[in-house]
């Protein structure tokens, strides 16, 4: 389209393509370099030979050097628990904000929006004290609990619910559907794209989250992958870089592979979640 719309010669076009590709290659370099060392023997850490022998040895050594299997289970439990809780709690709240009239609605919604600015991520000192008082320190529940009520999810779902035609809502009620029935049969199915988009954002955010899990966990049985990786990479200074790079790829693997497989959907869903 742009060739039609703009007066540009083939030279401009070539420059444009070259710019796009140069940036893409520069952008991939750090990751490509890490991947190179992870799949080659340590001797090739800083030597680039096209036919250097490939090996899975670094991955095996990384996997055996730290309990990554356990970290995986912890992270999967964590992101599943957070997403499930967020979807239930925030769908209910968003529905109330979108379709019910009640005193205090605007004030409460403003308080919800405040969480977009002042998030639990920075209130770590106080939330740690709360978890300590609740006796929840070093549990997976404690990592997730502050994120269950997501202001972002409530906001996003409320916006979506507001676009549902009133007629559908009323028709369902005339048929004798209860309030929760209407929510479940009319609103939730229509909000499926938003829910999917939010789900992707939530899972990738909490898969990658680090500081709060670092603070509240203190044992192998609760640590998620990010915390496990940071401990592995910083305490064992004797570990070779090729092994650390392998461990780095192990922790980000599923998200990376998921992204590469479903790139289009991923980007579209991030776009949907981002548009306000």
């Amino acid at each position: 389209m742009s060739t039609l719309a703009h007066h540009e010669g083939p030279f401009d076009r070539a420059l444009f393509v070259a710019g796009a590709w140069t940036l893409a290659i520069v952008w991939l370099l750090p990751l490509a370099y890490a991947a190179w060392t992870a799949i080659h023997p340590p001797a090739f850490v800083a030597r680039f030979e096209l036919f250097a022998p490939l090996t899975a040895e670094n991955f095996v050594r990384a996997w055996n050097a730290a309990p990554f299997g356990r970290y995986y289970i912890n992270t999967i439990l964590l992101v599943t628990m957070i997403l499930a809780a967020q979807l239930v709690l925030c769908t209910l709240a968003a529905f109330a904000f979108a379709r019910l009239e009640f005193p205090g609605r605007n004030v409460l919604f403003a308080l919800v929006l405040m969480q977009l600015m002042v998030m639990p991520d920075i209130l770590i000192v106080r939330n740690y004290a709360t978890m300590s008082a609740l006796g929840l320190l070093d549990t997976i529940l404690a990592i997730g609990l502050p994120y269950f009520a997501s202001g972002f999810a409530i906001f996003l779902l409320r916006q979506t619910f507001k676009t549902v035609p009133r007629e559908l809502d009323e028709a369902a009620r005339v048929e004798g559907c209860s309030l929760l029935g209407v929510l479940w049969r009319v609103y939730v199915p229509l909000a499926r794209p938003t829910i999917l988009a939010f789900g992707l954002v939530s899972v990738s955010h909490h898969w990658n989250n680090f500081i709060w899990p670092l603070i509240v966990t203190s044992s192998v049985n609760t640590r998620p992958l990010t915390v496990g990786l940071s401990i592995f990479a910083t305490t064992d200074s004797g570990v070779e870089w090729s092994v650390i790079n392998a461990a780095t790829l192990i922790t980000s693997g599923p998200l990376l592979i998921g992204f590469l497989l479903f790139q289009r959907q991923f980007i579209q869903n991030f776009m949907r979640a981002g548009i306000k």
Binding site: L23, L31, S204, F210, T251
Partner: peptide, 16 residues
């Protein structure tokens, strides 16, 4: 290529 770094945990990015 542009979007991939966003998917990685910042901890992993820092190691890289």
């Amino acid at each position: 290529a542009y979007f991939t770094p966003t998917v990685l945990p910042l901890i992993a990015v820092a190691n890289i």
